[in-house]
Design a protein around this nucleic acid. Structure first.
Lengths: 129, 129
DNA sequence: ATACATGGATTACAACTGTAATCAAGTGAG
DNA sequence: CTCACTTGATTACAGTTGTAATCCATGTAT
């Protein structure tokens, strides 16, 4: 039940790296981010430090250089963000979100079939497979 | 194609009021917010001013007191927020969002049926109604 | 032993946010 | 006409965020 920390947009990029594979040294994180984010190594180190301060991640202090790892899971963060996003933007209701998404996106019928399957599983968890 | 302004969490509350009914005077907005937000009237006025500065809203300057109205629509803002949210939290993919949502929420079969209907309409827009 | 490089700790700094308070100008009450 | 109230304009101020740079300590090459 411990509260999740507030994670900023830039910090999320770092978290995603550590959720993909962990533990990692600062330099490994920096390299992993280099491909898509145009950040100075110093910036990434700052973000790591802030995430440590927020207790979203930690590091093994005995290992030099430090190796960092997440203290909270991606799914719990996603759920929390989703809840607050829905509340803020859609007054908590999923349906208009889906309406907007469907209007906006090009989806193959296979995509739609996948989504439909999710609903099937929810309405009748037995008939899965 | 003009860029939407960045609207903060507190500012969203004000926007939602103006999207519901508009134009409104500052005091009307303050009253409308009083029920759910515990903000000083000064705070609400600050938010209105910032939204004007961001060109998210405007006011009729000839009418005293000013009456404010939105310059951007709720749906376009929702779409933009949804896109950036999906990108940030789910790497742009809707499916895991839906998975998380479904796992978290108690939904009646009627709710699910509604969502399924949305997918039906998307896959075959003709057979609607 | 010494100087340099590397990683980690500390500091920087402006923009944006939440949350107002203060100041100033116009309007209605007396 | 003058004073107080209301509305609008300006200012405040600390915390978060994006985006680093600087300082310090330790390991490495010479």
């Amino acid at each position: 039940m411990n509260k999740l920390p507030v994670i900023s947009e830039a910090e999320w990029e770092v978290m995603k790296i550590l959720w993909q594979s962990s533990p990692m040294t600062a330099n490994e994180v920096i390299d992993a981010l280099a491909s898509h984010m145009d950040w100075s190594p110093k910036t990434v180190r700052t973000l790591l430090n802030r995430l440590v301060a927020k207790e979203a991640i930690a590091y093994h202090p005995d290992s030099r250089p430090y190796s960092y790892f997440a203290l909270i899971t991606e799914v719990e963060c996603q759920k929390a963000e989703t809840k607050s996003f829905l509340k803020r933007i859609y007054s908590g209701s999923f349906k208009p979100l889906m309406v907007n998404f469907l209007k906006e996106e090009e989806l193959s019928s296979a995509d739609i079939e996948e989504l439909r399957k999710l609903l099937d599983e929810k309405s009748d968890p037995k008939r899965r497979g």
